[in-house]
Design a binder for these strands. Structure first.
Lengths: 267, 267
DNA sequence: AAAAATGTTCCGGTAAACGGAATTTCCGGA
DNA sequence: TCCGGAAATTCCGTTTACCGGAACATTTTT
């Protein structure tokens, strides 16, 4: 189940489900029945939604094949979500890290007071530690990547988050304001975050921030593995590898930041 | 006005407007009032829609700044719209062509029986010919890019389109099935489409197909200018430039096509 | 501290969505 | 070419989910 809660506005919830179904379907598109069966909607309802989505350009309908695919407007909206441009830029780095270390590598960005996992790359080591799925959120500070993000926000922000966000960390053990404050301090000192089995005891993770020119974290690279693979000599190598890629990413971001691809406006 | 008709499903129509408003707003996001004022919605209505969109991850809400920005789900959907990957791949080519020729360059893809303009790059020549906006649709065959797309579909498809789509070409002069059939034949023979003022009399355009390995057009590059700039010696150069870029793009597509970026599934 | 602007919630009326069923279109097989 | 089944589309009476004015809360400005 993607997100537990559902439906403040029924139509939006359903439309979103439809779009996700189409997105995860074959590239030639879905037929009406595929949507109805997949989502348990009535034919009439699904049809009405699809037509509505087609009217606004979110899906494209092929008269000849009777199939629905994602439309250009969705692509254009996605391209306008500049905050996530880093996913494209970082993908090669993730792939390199996963290949070199054989472990699982994550990319997270800040989303409000949460860390949002926006990409993941799996290495070929046989024991996999898939703690996070793409799209998952964690309170800032909980997890290596999340901690790296938190530790390199502004001091004021960190203070506020430590103070106010206690509730959203309640379900995790060992993330009281004080404990987390210590972790933040250590992370700032060393330049990287270390999660030694705080969440899942058999595994550990390292996170490093991707900094903007002001030294604020705009993203975090992290790597997770079973604890045996995160011990002394290897962990240092991993920190070095991550830091190097993060540094390179920072430069890519500031370099490419200026010449923001300006797709012509609609509206 | 983006698309003339509106509202099969009111909520979807409104939600789409909201998303577009956010997309074309500042990157720090829009406030509730910005949305209400911009779209003429009531406060309660806009608020409900925004919350619904936030619930499904289409917008992200910052508690601290009270601003709404595009959410990760929209980005993920956009990235899943593989058909439009070509836009990113082609952008450098468009930029090069616009710089070299100083004219306006377009990228179009087939969308049903229409050509859909998916990107545009403006050269610095003082007389600009902005016939197409990004997002605009033209019946297949009407316009240089559109004609290039049509001419390199399968023979059966071309025949059907010539036969059946007369109605959608009615508002354009000189695009009867016979006339268009001739244009198609000429385009197939020469490898490029030429539009010598058929639509707007003072201007002309050249289009070339971007072919897949089977020789089917998946996109078209086109360039438009006032007719004076589209005469004999220069037009040949333009055809050569366009063809070269189109060829390169074809190879990029087939090369990059295999290793499709597989972002992990949500479900 | 008051005032203005913005954000959030409430709630009854009603338009808009719902969905079962009828109709039409499409497609594969004989 | 015709037929039968599956899918797509439309119809329409029912009802629910959305609407939006207004009250309330919060934030920002003066």
């Amino acid at each position: 189940m993607p997100d537990g809660r559902n439906a403040q506005v029924q139509t939006i919830d359903r439309a979103a489900r439809v779009l996700r179904a189409i997105a995860s379907g074959p590239s030639e598109g879905l037929r009406l029945v595929d949507v109805t069966d997949g989502l348990g909607l009535g034919k009439a309802t699904a049809h009405r939604l699809l037509r509505g989505l087609a009217d606004v350009g979110f899906v494209a309908f092929s008269e000849t094949t009777k199939r629905y695919a994602l439309g250009f407007e969705i692509y254009a909206l996605g391209a306008a979500a500049q905050r996530f441009r880093i996913v494209d830029l970082a993908r090669p780095a993730l792939a390199r890290l996963a290949a070199k270390t054989r472990d699982t590598v994550y990319l997270s960005v800040r989303d409000g007071d949460h860390a949002l996992c926006v990409d993941r790359c799996t290495g070929e080591y046989p024991i996999r530690t898939l703690t996070l799925d793409v799209g998952d959120r964690r309170p800032l500070g909980v997890g290596a990547g999340s901690l790296a993000l938190l530790a390199f926000q502004t001091e004021a922000d960190i203070a506020r988050i430590l103070r106010d966000d206690h509730a959203m960390r309640a379900q995790f053990d060992g993330f009281s304001s004080d404990a987390l404050g210590d972790m933040v301090r250590r992370s700032r000192a060393t330049g990287h975050a270390f999660n030694d089995g705080y969440i899942v005891s058999a595994m550990a993770a390292i996170g490093v921030p991707v900094l903007d020119p002001d030294g604020r974290a705009v993203a975090a690279l992290s790597i997770a593995a079973i604890r045996e693979r995160m011990q002394a000599p290897r962990s240092d190598e991993l920190v070095a590898l991550l830091s190097a890629e993060a540094e390179e990413l920072s430069q890519l971001l500031t370099a490419g930041g200026g010449k923001t691809l300006k797709t012509e406006e609609f509206s």
